[in-house]
């Protein structure tokens, strides 16, 4: 693919919503960052820090209270109003009444793409995630790992400029996670998409990302931006490198205090 990619600029994005009690809750506070085209950026933070919310704001499914998100075409330098985007969800969010193939083809169907092309592209994407032969199965007949590979195919079939990953492997067991992380890294590199990965796993962030944004407890702010200069392709053996350990420690130290704070907030509201 000869795509040059799309860069993302997030400027002073804040989000305040009213809780059920009516009291305003500040979820995000003046979040700013730049994401280079064709890079994988991980957003990591304690639970409840608004990282998934941030992802939905980037996707345009949620409007920020203030601030804005811009997408810039790297080739032309022009602000792209509607880059192609697709999300992979923690809960898979597959349509239970549709077969695997019909789930993957959903976005193409919505876009009015002809049936023959839909079938063609769906088949290609399913084989990319090693799910060829499962076209006529229903999601309930698949394991968690297989479901998320269908979820990944459903996003990739849209050929997104920006791929959003909302804790995509959070619901999977550790072994399945490792295998899927490697598969994801290969696919993202091959497709030339710009990817934003929300995760609570430091290991996942280091293995997949070029840049890691560490967020604070609520209200979520960017606490640090960390470059991951480890060689690719990364795998389980990457975790044995000393550079990996020092990166892990650095992120853990940043997160630890925020996690303690987040627990205090949770205890307060409980």
């Amino acid at each position: 693919m000869t795509r040059t990619g799309v860069a993302i600029a997030c400027d002073d994005v804040s989000l305040t919503y009213s809780a059920k009690s009516g009291a305003p809750v500040e979820a995000l506070q003046r979040v700013s960052f730049r994401i280079s085209p064709r890079q994988v950026t991980a957003v990591i933070g304690p639970s409840g820090c608004g990282k998934s919310t941030l992802l939905q704001i980037v996707r345009g499914l949620l409007a920020p209270s203030s601030g804005r998100i811009r997408f810039v075409d790297a080739q032309t330098g022009v602000v792209a109003s509607t880059p192609r985007m697709a999300t992979v969800w923690q809960g898979f969010n597959l349509f239970p009444w549709r077969t695997v193939a019909d789930n993957v083809a959903f976005g193409l169907e919505v876009a009015g793409i002809a049936r023959q092309e839909r079938i063609e592209r769906t088949r290609r994407c399913l084989s990319q995630v090693d799910m060829a032969g499962f076209e006529v199965k229903h999601p309930r007949q698949l394991s968690g790992g297989m479901r998320q590979r269908v979820g990944l195919a459903r996003a990739l079939v849209m050929e997104p400029d920006v791929l959003l990953l909302d804790e995509p492997f959070g619901a999977l067991d550790a072994q399945t996670r490792l295998v899927l992380q490697e598969q994801l890294a290969r696919l993202v590199e091959k497709s030339g998409t710009t990817a934003v990965l929300v995760t609570h796993s430091i290991e996942e962030a280091i293995l997949l990302a070029d840049t890691i944004l560490v967020m604070t407890a609520r209200p979520g702010r960017i606490a640090a931006e960390i470059n991951v200069a480890l060689p690719r392709p990364r795998s389980l053996s990457t975790t044995h490198l000393s550079a990996y350990s020092s990166l892990f420690d650095q992120i853990y130290r940043l997160l630890r205090d925020e996690v303690v704070k987040a627990m205090a907030i949770e205890a307060e509201s409980a």
Binding site: T87, G91, N93, G107, E109, V110, M158
Partner: peptide, 26 residues
């Protein structure tokens, strides 16, 4: 499931398509 509605919107479904392809079947 609100997750299914989000997924459909993410894949570009309009309000009408969400009704026809997600709300009604579910």
């Amino acid at each position: 499931d609100p997750g299914l509605i989000l997924a459909a919107r993410d894949l570009g479904a309009t309000n009408r398509q969400v009704v026809r392809m997600v709300l009604l079947p579910s």
